[in-house]
Structures are given as C-alpha cells and as structure tokens.
Design a protein around this nucleic acid. Structure first.
Lengths: 255, 255
DNA sequence: CGGGCAATTGAAATACATCAAGGCGTGTGG
DNA sequence: CCACACGCCTTGATGTATTTCAATTGCCCG
C-alpha cells in the first residue's frame, strides 16, 4: 500500500504530525498519544497520566476483518493509519456499509458498551490500529468529565450521521448518494489535514462505494464515469481530486 | 380518535395500568409517574423523590408538529398516548421518517444534548405528551446511576435502530421494508401490552409508511393490497391484524 | 503463464415512480 | 339537507432508474 510505511516506526512517523496538525482526531481527543512517550507533547501530557488506559498496537492487512459481526471483543480500536469500513451482511450476502473509518477515527462507540457487535469492521487498506480495553476506557471516561464530554460528542455525531445515511438511502438518487459520500469523505480528510490541492488518498474500490450507497458496483462505475466526463472529479491511482467543488456540491444537493 | 379519551382524566386512565402492565415504557423507566401522586406505586415511589424533575403535560391534535426541525426546545417529550413520527424534510419536499414514537416512548435522546434539532416530530394521532426540562433531566441522570444506565440503554437502542433502518433502505426491496416496518411496530406494541388477538391500533396512513420506507404512497398501496390478498395481514378501521405470523416473518426475511 | 479481482460497456429485465382517473368517507358552508 | 372540496386509497398505463447478465480488458500476484 502506497500510503502505509513498512513497519512499526511507521506508526510514529505517520502520527508525528498528529497532535499538532490534526484538528479532529479521536486519538488525540482521548489522549492516547501519551501512551507513547515520544509523542506526548504540550497539553496532551498535562492530562492526568494516571487516568490513561493501557493500549496495544497492531497492523491489519488490507481486506482482513478487524472485528467480526456477533463477536464480543473487549477492546475498542482507534485507526492510526489506513481506512476501514463498518458493515453488516444479510444472510443472502447483501451488504450495507454503515460508516468508513479514516485515520484518526475511533470505531463506533457502541463497541464500548454493547455486548455483541452488530457489524464487522474490515480493513480497506492496511490498517494500523491502537486498541484500548473497554473496561479501562469506561473507567477513564467516568473519572474525567472532559473526556466524557468528548466521547458524548462523538456519540452524537454518530447518531446524526446514521440519520443522514437513512435519509440519503431512502430519498436520494444514485448521483446524489455517491456525490454526498465522496464529499463527506473529502471534508473529513480535510479536517485531518489530509487534503492537498483538493486531492486526497482514495483507497475505496467501487464495490465499497456500492455497499455504502445501496447500489451495485456496475451502476457506481457508470455514475463515476459520468462525473469524470463532466469534469467534476478526477480519480487516478487511488487518489481523488475534487476539480469542481461548486458543481459537485450542486449534484450532491448541498446548500 | 377512537383510541384517545376526551380530556385530561383520560391521561390518568390510560396510564393507570402502566407501571403494572407495561413492560417497556420510558415514562416508567424514568419515574415520571411519580409526578402524579395517584400513579406512584411500589418501587416507583421508592426512588428518591428529590431527584424528580418537574414535568408538564399537554395534548397535541393529529397532524400538528410537536417540535420543528432546527428548533431548540429546552424540553424533551414523552409520549403517553397516541403515535408520533420523527422525520426530516429535504428542500424539495422529499421526506424521510426516521422513527415512530409509540405510547410509552421517549423522543430521540439527542433532544437532551443537541443544540438544534435535525428532525421534526409530528403527531400522527392526537398525542398526549409529558415533557421534562432538559437541564432538569440531565441533572437527574447525572445524580442517579440507575436512571443513567436506563438512558444509555435507550441511546444504544436508538443507534442500533438507525443502523437497521439504513440496512433496510439500502439493501431490501419494498416488500421486505414494509413487512419489517409493520413487524417492528407490532413487536413494540406487544411489549407494551397493546396487542390483543394479534391485533393492534394502527393509525398510520399509507403516506407515513411510504415516508418511513423510502417508497411512494402509490407503491405502498399496491404492496399492502398484495399482503392482504395473500392473507398475511388484515387492516380495517385503523387497526391491523397479523393473520399469518410465520408467513409474514418470511416476507420480512426474519430468521 | 494462469487466475483472480477490478473496472468498463452494452443489452435486456425489473422494480419502482409517475401520471391519471375514479371512488369513498368526512367535514363544511350555503 | 345538499353540494362541494379534500384527504385517502385504489388501480391501470406508462416511464425510468437501477439491476442483472454478459463479454472484454487491464492488472497484480504467485
């Protein structure tokens, strides 16, 4: 994977700019850098070290599951590098992706409290995770009002994103759904400082877009071709450029 | 409305059986009966009375909005009687219903913490509500671990319902969506002791079903006709009977 | 070199939307 | 009391967005 450095030092390199540049990063929010003394800086280090839960790190290769539906993991992962997808699969194989996890994201917060998972999390690229034990995480949240509030904000965001998804799937056509998905990813990457010249890493396969928008991969291919032909976006070599933001927002019915 | 008694005494009558018969009722969970001395019984009365937030009651006629999108109400309503729908509307009029509120339900919990609402709540039948101030409710939750846990369970349920909705809208056809909606309502009414002989009050218009399933009212009419013709369900006079549970579960792709 | 995943493209099928007309029940104003 | 409008449901005819099927290509990887 082009966007992933080879070994564990890679984690630190990718994260080196994190507490400074990343505006919106769950790992920073929850103070997990501190577990790595090399990355503890500024106000991050000032939060009570005693409150820190133990973490553990690992890398999952692309296309592998990180957690499986109906599992009961006792940890919750944070994504340090790479992209992942949360999805559920029906008995006959139909699949719906509920959310994408980008670098800096925490997995769905229901993992902290729920007994059995209602979704799988699958690595799209190679994914470097840092995980926290649920019990430890819960007790940190209970003892630290600030972290608790951050956690609640994330829960609210999840809820509102889930509602948005339902509206998009129920009441928007294919063009709108796909354009909105791409813009959502664009904006989240931008918040994290991962967009340069309107261009960002875009590792999704068309079947990921299909499963996220409730369409088929064939139709996604046709719509994307049309988007490219009209000059709104350009996709090449796993990266996407937003060529005509105004036009694309119009397609996405934004504003 | 057949299922609504005339005046305020009606509230008490409808609720008289509540803490005893209703297995799954947010109003009971949060101890709001206690505000009415006549209905405080058993362990309900045993919870610290000091922790009780003040409530206020009112009735909203059918088809009226209870709260409007983008409003910032400082209260959260509980539904004592009647049905309501939470929905969002796009600029061009397309509408998606995100959830139905049945007797005993609390409105979406985001109302407690969010600043601006992302949905409207509309009375389907005449609705009798009991509302609680958000600030008072929050402080009760913070002081009472038991209530806090109940609140969290409701949040989790909301989240998992929102995900279910996305899956249904993204990956299931019209028959499945409609059957699943009806079964979901059936089961929730049953939990509340409001199903008798497989029959329950069903005040939804076909356009409600359409807006909840992402279909048009015309198509809903055709699908429902087919369901009736095949003998799975019977609908008459605002009430619905589940004639063939096994067959209907099969249509809904359950189990 | 073969084999599997990914993307593209065209033709045919289909699920659902849209359009249109009619019926039925209910409230309302003359 | 009737006329009329209006909301709600039904049904058929037609239109269309998206799926399904199929064939082809490129590409990466072993």
């Amino acid at each position: 994977m082009a966007n992933l450095q080879p070994k564990l030092p890679s984690f630190q390199r990718a994260c080196a700019r994190c507490p400074l540049e990343l505006g919106d990063c769950a790992i920073t929010d929850f103070n997990l850098w501190q577990a790595d003394p090399n990355t503890a800086v500024g106000n991050v280090a000032s939060i009570a070290a005693a409150a820190l839960p133990p973490t553990s790190d690992f890398t999952i290769p692309a296309r592998r599951l990180i957690v499986r539906e109906r599992d009961r993991p006792d940890f919750i992962p944070f994504v340090c590098q790479g992209w992942a997808a949360c999805s559920t699969t029906l008995s006959d194989g139909r699949r719906q992706i509920l959310s994408f996890l980008l670098p800096g994201d925490i997995a769905p917060t229901s993992m902290v409290f729920e007994l059995a998972l209602e979704f799988s999390i699958e690595a799209i690229t190679d994914v470097h995770c840092r995980t926290v034990k649920c019990t430890a995480f819960k007790s940190v949240l209970m003892r630290n009002a600030d972290l608790f509030e951050k956690f609640n904000r994330i829960c609210s965001y999840e809820m509102s994103r889930a509602n948005q998804l339902a509206i998009d799937l129920g009441r928007r056509d294919a063009d709108e759904r796909i354009a909105r998905l791409i813009l959502n990813l664009y904006n989240r990457m931008k918040q994290r400082g991962l967009v340069r010249d309107r261009t960002f890493d875009f590792p999704l396969r068309q079947h990921h877009i299909a499963d996220a928008t409730g369409l088929t991969a064939v139709h996604v291919s046709k719509v994307l071709s049309e988007f490219r032909r009209s000059g709104c976006i350009a996709i090449s070599d796993r990266s996407l450029t937003l060529c005509d933001p105004a036009g694309f927002n119009a397609i996405a019915d934004i504003r």
